[in-house]
């Protein structure tokens, strides 16, 4: 029995179609686990916010809405550039894949940079949870807000860092022409991941920054 080897088609799949369906389906299933991973944190958020509404509002007022809003725009922009990278892969423009992913990294990096600025402000003001946490207002348990804030945004940022790491691997591969219109599952699968990370932020921003607006 002769083995026919198509480029980019793993031996255990019968067709590109099957390989592609498996890759996407796997990604979606993985994203379902991610939803539940963040779900645990959202659950803690819900419980503690309903137990300490004043403290959460007070903590939220400490966050910088302008920086948060800019970051939201930056991330949405990065989803656009990612979608353009996927499109470039579909039409087989290898250099454009690399270029749009590069733009995505730039925007993601901007987001993380702004996050560092925000974090350092908070640490400077003594709002990092732990024995050195200080709070002068009348509200009790504001530290819990910052527990939740740092955990949620920290894990979100970790997901972005991992995403940037993966793009740094994908870009040279794209440049070398590894991804063809028939076979570019890594690019499209990664696109799903990146959009998911954006969507998490879309929930985090109002839940953390906009508690006491209006």
């Amino acid at each position: 029995m002769a083995e026919i080897h198509a480029p980019g088609l793993a031996h255990h799949f019968d067709s590109y179609q099957q390989q592609k369906e498996a890759a996407f389906f796997g990604m979606w299933v993985f994203l379902a686990t991610e939803v539940l991973f963040f779900g645990g944190l959202f659950c803690a958020y819900l419980v503690y916010r309903s137990a300490n509404p004043e403290a959460f509002a007070a903590g939220s007022r400490e966050l910088d809405i302008v920086l948060g809003a800019i970051n939201t725009a930056v991330l949405i922009g990065s989803s656009l550039t990612m979608a353009l990278a996927v499109h470039a892969a579909q039409v087989g423009k290898r250099k454009m894949i690399a270029a749009w992913m590069g733009a995505t990294i730039l925007l993601g990096g901007t987001f993380l940079g702004i996050k560092v600025v925000e974090y350092s402000h908070k640490i400077h003001e003594g709002h990092f949870p732990g024995p050195n946490f200080v709070w002068h207002g009348p509200e009790v348990n504001v530290e819990m807000f910052f527990n939740v804030y740092f955990l949620m945004t920290g894990l979100h940022a970790l997901h972005m860092i991992i995403g940037i790491g993966i793009m740094l691997v994908l870009i040279p591969l794209a440049w070398k022409g590894r991804f063809t219109p028939e076979s570019h599952n890594y690019v499209e699968g990664f696109g799903l991941y990146w959009h998911f990370v954006d969507i998490v932020w879309i929930f985090l921003f109002p839940l953390l920054y906009l508690l006491d607006v209006g």
Binding site: T33, L36, F37, F38, G130, P131
Partner: peptide
């Protein structure tokens, strides 16, 4: 896939609580 991530993040919170001495 639906249960494990929840315990993962819970254990992460326990570890964070212990390391950072938060509550």
């Amino acid at each position: 896939i639906l249960g494990t991530p929840v315990v993962a993040v819970t254990i992460l919170m326990v570890a964070a609580e212990r390391i950072l001495r938060i509550g």
